[in-house]
Amino acid sequence: MKREASLLEVQNLTTYYELPRGYVKAAENINFNVKVGEALGLAGESGCGKTTVALSIVRLLPPEGRIMGGKCLFKGVDIVKLPEEEVRKKIRWKGISIVFQGAMNALNPVYRIGDQIVEAITTHEDVSEEEAIKRAEKLFELVGIDPSRLDNYPFEFSGGMRQRALIAMALACNPDLIIADEPGTALDVIVQAQVLKLLKSLKEKLNLAVIMISHDLSMIAETCDKIAIMYAGRIVEYGDIVKVFKRSLHPYTQGLIGAFPSIKGPRMRMISIPGSPPNLLNPPPGCRFHPRCKYAMDICRKEVPEFIEIEPEHWVACHLVSKK
């Protein structure tokens, strides 16, 4: 990996979930970096490990989650090795914020939205309640909600507004990086476009770095600078977004892109990838995609392909490619 000013550098991160019957190998040897003000799309379907990676970074894994190895360097400091107190005081909300999937439904229904944001601010920073309220008002303006609506309860907000309120909350302590897990799910197309536009403008105005987790490649294509495609716990392709889209090398990436019909351009037959993702308690040996890959060779069944930089800013893990 290039040693430039990376805000977040994930190196060989491996996270498993410990169950009575064994380890679920949810994420293995994850490598990527995010620079200041950069947007990375973490793409993949359900069960590929993208949320596990996000939770590992902010150390919010459930009790069964274990970071088995690797580093998450945030401004040079390894989050994985920090004590919980430090993570809570210095990293969460202030350094890295996370907007969970479907969080708009997880807002506490019996408290006003304003109170929830103020609580977030006063818990993590030494400011008075008045100060916090003023900040909350500014945040609402930033995300395009009338500040007077801080007094509303969550049920008085529509889905799109709740999503924006959550983004406001995530920005409450001026983080450098925001992780948005499926920010468009359960939102209508137009509202989704509004939220994406908001994220893009926040990225510009605040020089905010973003990790956008999504199964929707179109959404990632619209907003991100880089993309990492995950399959069955591993990154199969990673790099500059234009390079990955225009010259996708991994068969899974190609299949995934082919599964997203475009509203523009000529009508095409949609591609699908037969089969389904493997059970991560007992993943297949070698390349985890080989059971579904039409190009699978013998070596694919035996050896895990190496993550190779095939051209500047474009990495792929595939025996087909490394052979050349």
């Binding site: 197309v189 137009i190 989704q192 476009a193 994406l196 929707d216 490649l217 179109s218 959404m219 294509a221 619209e222 991100c224 977004i241 234009v242 889209f245 225009k246 892109i257 997203f260 475009s262 509203i263 523009k264």
Partner: peptide, 10 residues
């Protein structure tokens, strides 16, 4: 117009 397009260069 609101539908995202899977093409980063669009």
């Amino acid at each position: 117009e609101a539908v995202p397009v899977p093409d980063p260069e669009a």
